[in-house]
Design a binder for these strands. Structure first.
Lengths: 256, 256
DNA sequence: CGGTCTCTTGACCTCTGTCAAGTAGAGTGG
DNA sequence: CCACTCTACTTGACAGAGGTCAAGAGACCG
């Protein structure tokens, strides 16, 4: 069974939909019930975007603080000769732009990978929320630090692993991250990524991604049904990937 | 004239030596005179390490907050097959491990590139310093965010640029960063990096670094005297590198 | 002045990129 | 339900950037 998990049930009440964001923060930082309620009490809008639409453009100044409720998004940078590199992948529950709370100009652009739904807070509201709550301030910081840690692992991945291990590693990471937030078994998880997007995530070309997927498939590490890619054997995949989840910093912070 | 700039004059008084750290923070964040004095009033020790010594090992828990006064340092990660990737380069004035103030376990190791001198604060002292001072807390955060921005640029560099542009880009970045903090002309700046270290910074091999340096030299972009590499023509180098300094976020934060 | 580390160079190899043509799904409209 | 279209995927042949191996030369250090 292939499931394309894109977030919690969209039929929930608007306020309940923030649950996935709070769950994400709790996965790495302790928050009191009062802290959690303060997030739910914050005013926000739901915004829908199509795949590939920009959430924030390089050079712009952000005015809002978006959180991903449904779908996937990414940060990208481009080189002068048109090369595109995806420098971060965001999944449901992730805050998309804590950076803009503290730095004026975006150094990269932020786009929807699939159709997405965002919870959009006003920056000022969010700042007022965090200022008097050290636990929340720390949760924001730890969130930023974990993204930085993932970025370092990607540097190792792209700089020093071959195409096979590189792809396997990315698949492991996505699986772990989605499994952690999904609150359901996603072992039959169906990735919403095209081969071109995988190429831009890994510093490779779409043609080579295609060939590498075939190798993973022959090894039994992944399975494909029509165009949908899913994990076949996580053990094999992890071994091929040289994967360890330490860099995801899951639950490594002491309790409050 | 080749100068190997390694930091401010080591003959200054112990307290004055913190000036380079304060200057670094001021380069991106506003701090009141009182904030600045509060840093100078903090107790700290000077610690010297030889090249390649560990400052913090992957998996360890930090107990101190080190700041680089003299020399260069780096963060590194290694893959299962022994591949080494340097994931961040730190220059004099840089704080080396703000991360450990907020996250328990190091996900990478931190080592001296050259012989270094560190100002070492106790984590508890540093936390007490920052807690009641929002400007300082913000400066720490912005420092973390700028390092993350540099990491994203490195991902683009390693993922999508060829060896020539990749090396040129790194040299531009180091030049800009050193020039910003050095308070003197470093146009004859002599890089303290071996070709093997350059390779580990860029996801290449030492042999290919050697060949690429020769290309840069032939183009007039860099010069070498004996084994020392320096910038010949920054304009040419920047053009070959597809370099823009936006991602360094210099003075992009509004005044207090 | 011998030892060691780094740099240099050539020959060869291979992983990944490029190009180009063909195929297969997914979606749309009739 | 079928034709049509668009996009993504697939495949093969070939090219080339960068890696590997190995030997020698040049610096630096005690």
């Amino acid at each position: 069974m292939l499931v394309r998990w894109m977030g919690d049930d969209p039929a929930m009440t608007k306020e309940d939909r923030l649950g996935i964001f709070i769950r994400k923060l709790l996965s790495h930082s302790p928050l009191s019930p009062d802290d959690q309620q303060s997030i739910r009490d914050l005013p926000f809008n739901i915004r829908r975007l199509e795949a590939n639409e920009h959430i924030l453009r390089e050079g712009e100044k952000a005015t809002v603080c978006p959180v991903l409720l449904q779908g996937y998004a990414y940060r990208q940078k481009t080189s002068a000769d048109g090369g595109r590199q995806i420098v971060a992948l965001k999944i449901p529950g992730d805050a998309l732009d804590f950076q803009s709370l503290y730095v004026e100009t975006a150094d990269h652009s932020l786009q929807a990978l699939t159709p997405v739904e965002l919870a959009v807070f006003a920056i000022k509201d969010f700042e007022k929320l965090v200022a008097p709550r050290p636990n929340l301030a720390r949760a924001v910081l730890v969130d930023i630090l974990i993204e930085a840690s993932i970025g370092r692992e990607w540097l190792l991945n792209i700089g020093r692993r071959n195409a096979l291990a590189r792809l396997a590693h990315l698949l492991c990471e996505i699986f772990y991250r989605v499994q952690q937030i999904a609150q359901q078994d996603v072992s039959g998880f169906d990735l919403p990524l095209t081969q071109e997007q995988l190429a831009d995530l890994l510093g490779l070309t779409p043609v080579h991604i295609n060939r590498t997927i075939k190798l993973l498939e022959n090894a039994g590490a992944v399975r494909r049904i029509s165009r949908r890619l899913t994990i076949g054997d996580l053990g094999i995949l992890q071994q091929m990937a040289d994967f360890s989840d330490i860099y995801l910093h899951r639950n490594t912070v002491s309790a409050v």
